[in-house]
Computed example of a mutant assay.
Amino acid sequence: MMRAVENPARLSALARLRSSLPPEVLAASDRMDEIRRRLVDTARDVEVDERLLRLKTSMFGPVDGKEGSILIITGESHAGKTTMLERKLLVDPGLQPYEIDSKPITPLVYMGVKAPNSLQSLAVELLATLGYPVKVDMKRPAAFKLLREKLQERQVLILWLDEAQNLLHVNNPMELTIVANNLVTLVQNMEWPIRIILSGLPELDDLVDFKQIRSRADHWPLGKTTNPAHVAGWLHEIVEKHAELTLDDTLYRYDADEEKWIDNVEFGLRLVHASGGNFGTIMRLIRDAVGCGLKEYDLAVAKGDAPPTCQIGRRHFAKAYANIVGVSNKANIFWAPNWGELPGDMARVKLAEIETSAEPTREMEKELGKKVKPLRAGERRK
């Protein structure tokens, strides 16, 4: 399956569109694109390396070996599952396609499971991905039999199904057993056993309830981010290293009493709450805040009153949050004194009685800093 970034027709269309845009707009857009492409290292990268290594080395054991033959990674939308696996699997030197006597070999097959889906349509789509288009009305038993043959013909070692929770959307609960059984037939095929990676939303966890899956699965539910120190580390990496900008004193300041630079812990807790602890959403908010800061700075440059450097602060996160969620300043988690009482997880707060105020001033920032007692993520005021 061709991806959008590899589609020549789409790339040509985008090039034509670019030619119509002003250079200054393209420069800002390209800079943000570069910033968004930079990856942030986390403890998850170490763990996924270990789990993928176990998955690969499990193929060197007995053909009917069970343990660790199916890796299941679940998490909320934008938790970073797909990106984490892409950056590991798609560049793995041992999983790159090659040819033997002009015959294509595909060690890794990667496909997103469409919704709605069935085992029959999954087999048909996988066959097409492997280069063997078949009739869409092909019966499931025949389609899976052919799929097993073609997986062996292409010498597929690992099958990665993203958005795999769509396999569980069936009308008859008994069909879930059929789903589990057919996945197992692929990993315990006596002639050509493969390894399977399933990634998707938390509902995919239900698949582990089946004994035949549970005995073979390495199940990894991705947890939420709750530690403001982790958030601070990612903030510094994206703003200072990726964007080559600085943080203002609403986020990072020098404490004369302790004689050291310190991060704003309360801000970290606000960011955790605003994102629902979702890693991908935290990344989005930080990068969007950088984008807001760059736009503000470019406008100041155009007016001739720009400061010496572009600094990213609380107001840029408030702007980024408002752009996504659509709330007034008084209902904005990055400004509101009662931020712990506001819905998190990027919830759209609809409070018609709250009038939209002007952009917060530095005095407001100082007032918030003095009067608001830091809360833990999700804590409510009494």
Rank of each mutant, 00 (worst) to 15 (best):
K371Q: 14
K295P: 00
N338H: 06
V5A: 15
I262K: 15
E76N: 12
A232I: 04
V184D: 01
L222Q: 04
W234K: 07
P116D: 03
A9M: 11
P193G: 04
A358N: 13
K66W: 11
G280F: 00
T129L: 10
A27V: 09
R18N: 13
E47I: 11
L351C: 11
L222D: 00
S121V: 12
V134Y: 03
E149R: 13
H236Y: 07
A352C: 09
L247M: 09
L285S: 03
D345K: 11
N172V: 10
R148Q: 15
V325N: 03
I213H: 02
V109R: 00
V91P: 06
L247D: 00
G233E: 02
A358H: 13
P141R: 11
E237M: 11
Q165Y: 02
L90W: 08
P107G: 10
V231W: 03
V46A: 14
N171R: 15
V265D: 14
V91L: 12
H236P: 05
M1A: 11
E367R: 15
A358K: 13
K81W: 03
R348H: 14
V63T: 10
L26P: 01
V184R: 10
K81S: 02
A300K: 12
F144A: 05
A229Y: 11
S58H: 01
V136Q: 10
E24N: 13
T225M: 15
I194Y: 00
D345R: 14
I197A: 01
M138D: 06
V40K: 00
V184Q: 07
L186R: 02
A232W: 00
G276K: 04
K103A: 10
R51C: 08
I72V: 12
N172T: 12
A322I: 09
D49P: 00
A28T: 12
K350W: 08
E99Y: 12
I194H: 00
A300R: 13
M59I: 03
G61I: 02
T42C: 04
D33S: 14
A318Q: 03
G369C: 08
L90N: 09
M138I: 12
K373A: 11
R315E: 13
L147K: 12
V134Q: 03
